[in-house]
């Protein structure tokens, strides 16, 4: 079965690691995988995305408009930005969290409420993740990626076991416990 997944957010939020973990889990299951990342200047607080394509017969790592089965959003406005890539009826799992760009702090022009409302109005299959609350409970603002991965784990077409193995193999030991707690937060708080 083929699956196209887009991760999106703001540079520095950890989309690259989350993308790596999904791909590593797919490799564990012998599913062919290709992906593409934003690397470079945009990583300094700009808009970033990862495209991940799982399954046979894929020519290119880039996902076309209207082709994504799942959008995993790390930030409200960035989630809305990627909506044109969503397949009809596709799923959106998004952190209910805004990152205010400097341009907006200076001159306004970003209304996260409007982004949330737009998602609620236009996406039938929407999960808004209470990220602020969860990260406070987890005691670290740095594990948003694993928190969201936990919420997405049932929608990736991958087994939880292979995701857990991927996490254990790719996260530095001293942060492993925290990252596993973030990953299992979704299951514990359903």
């Amino acid at each position: 079965m083929n699956r196209n997944i887009i991760l999106c957010g703001v540079g520095g939020q950890g989309t690259v690691l989350a993308s790596r973990l999904i791909s590593a889990a797919a490799m564990k299951e012998g599913i062919p995988v290709q992906s593409a990342e934003t690397i470079g200047m945009a990583q300094r607080g700009g808009s970033v995305f990862s495209h991940i394509r799982l399954g046979e017969g894929v020519n290119t790592p880039m996902i076309g408009l209207g082709q994504a089965d799942l959008i995993l959003g790390f930030e409200l406005g960035e989630t809305v930005r990627q909506l044109p890539y969503r397949k009809e009826g596709g799923k959106v799992i998004a952190a209910d969290k805004a990152v205010m760009p400097v341009t907006a702090s200076l001159a306004g022009g970003y209304d996260p409420q409007a982004m949330r409302a737009y998602l609620q109005q236009h996406v039938a299959d929407l999960t808004l993740v209470p990220a602020e609350k969860a990260l406070l409970e987890l005691g670290s603002p740095k594990v948003l990626n694993l928190l969201l991965l936990g919420y997405a784990s049932a929608s990736l077409g991958l087994s939880e076991d292979s995701l857990l193995t991927a996490i254990r193999e790719n996260v530095p030991p001293k942060f492993l416990e925290l990252n596993l707690a973030a990953f299992s937060y979704a299951a514990a708080n359903r």
Binding site: V10, G11, G12, M41, A42, Q43, R44, G45, G46, S47, G64, L65, G66, G77, E78, V80, R81, L83, P84, E88, P101, V102, T103, A104, G109, Y110, A114, M115, Y118, H122
Partner: peptide, 18 residues
């Protein structure tokens, strides 16, 4: 290619000094 949905005004997010 599906018609692009009409999106609300999105934040401008150029890269910045950390």
């Amino acid at each position: 290619i599906p018609a692009a949905p009409e999106l609300p005004p999105l934040p401008v997010r150029p890269p910045v000094l950390c």
